[in-house]
Amino acid sequence: MRIPLLLSALTLAVTPAISDTIEARLGTTEFHDAKITHAPDDGVVRLFGAGGPHTAIAKVAEVWEGKTGNRVVITAGPEHRWTSDAQESADILWGTSQQSMAAFLLTYTSFKLDDAEPIYLRPTVIAVRAGNPKGIRGFDDLLAEGVRIVVTEGAGVYNTSGTGLWEDVAGRLGSLQDLRKFKGNIVSYALGSGASYREFERSNVDAWITWPNWPTVKDDLEMVKLEPHRTVYRDLSVVLSSKADPEAKQFLDFLVSAEAQYIMASEGWER
């Protein structure tokens, strides 16, 4: 037995380590289509990304279109609905967190992760039903018996900024009891923010740890701010194609201007 073991040890010693990095996995996702030619330079600024930021970005785009006469087309929602179009014609992609952007760029190999730039932050909040019938005022109220919570979770199969967010908030003070109580009140794990929002109707939930834009733009939701010591921030990042329309860079510059910051702040985006 000693000789085979020795040979195995020698084999391990001389075998080069296999890289398992994002760079090594570019273009290996189920969405990536090597047959699609990336050609976004068509005179229209086209942005693609997950739902959420698109409502504020659209308000900024409307102002910029009025100033410049250039056209902006924004496509948002679940990635499977727009991935082929984005691989062909995206000037700009946005990501709703760093991990979300990194996951996107495994598919969109014409964009580089090093070029992705964080441009805004937003804090976690609690979304409750309009009128706040449960009287939720902060995190501790979510631990009460009978509170029904929906959380957003990618579960390894869906790209969302909400992945692990509830755990970050619930475990922020290092209390295992907080985490257990919160988890005990979860009645639904939804794949994506849109699905989480729909659970208010489907599962009769009371609360959702999410981002300010959702309760801001939905009339049937109300926002409850989390205590500062519970608040977690994640960013909005953008990345520009090297083949983008020249106007795309101009739009990104406007997106962080003072005028645009005022618009973005109306939906909870901070800079």
Score class of each variant (00 low, 15 high):
M1D: 11
P4E: 10
S8P: 00
A9P: 03
L10Q: 07
L12R: 03
T15Q: 10
I18S: 15
T21K: 09
E23Q: 14
G27W: 12
E30Y: 04
H32G: 00
K35F: 07
D41Y: 03
R46I: 02
L47D: 07
P53F: 09
I57Y: 10
I57N: 07
A58Y: 14
A58S: 14
V60L: 09
A61E: 08
E62W: 05
G66K: 14
K67V: 10
N70W: 06
V72Y: 08
A76L: 10
A76P: 09
P78L: 07
P78C: 07
E79S: 09
H80L: 09
R81K: 12
D85Q: 15
E88M: 10
E88L: 08
E88T: 05
A90F: 08
A90R: 07
D91V: 04
D91E: 04
L93H: 05
L93V: 01
W94N: 01
G95Y: 04
G95P: 01
G95A: 02
Q98S: 11
Q98L: 11
Q99N: 13
M101P: 02
T107F: 09
Y108K: 00
F111Q: 04
D115N: 13
A116R: 08
P118E: 14
L121S: 12
P123D: 12
P123G: 06
P123F: 03
V125Y: 06
I126M: 10
A127G: 10
A130T: 10
A130K: 15
K134Q: 12
R137E: 15
L142P: 03
A144R: 15
G146P: 09
T152N: 05
T152L: 01
G154K: 01
A155N: 08
T160M: 01
S161D: 03
G162K: 06
T163F: 11
T163E: 14
G164N: 11
R172I: 13
L176A: 13
Q177C: 00
R180L: 11
R180S: 13
F182D: 01
N185Y: 08
I186H: 04
Y189F: 10
A195C: 00
A195F: 09
S196T: 02
Y197C: 00
F200A: 04
F200T: 01
R202I: 05
S203E: 14
N204Y: 06
D206Y: 05
W208A: 01
P212N: 05
N213T: 13
N213E: 14
N213V: 15
P215T: 04
D219I: 01
P228T: 06
P228I: 08
H229S: 13
H229N: 15
V232N: 11
R234Q: 14
L240W: 03
S241W: 03
S241M: 06
K243M: 06
K243F: 03
A248T: 03
K249D: 03
F251W: 02
L252C: 02
D253E: 14
L255H: 04
V256W: 07
A258P: 11
E259A: 11
I263V: 12
A265Y: 09
A265L: 10
E270A: 04
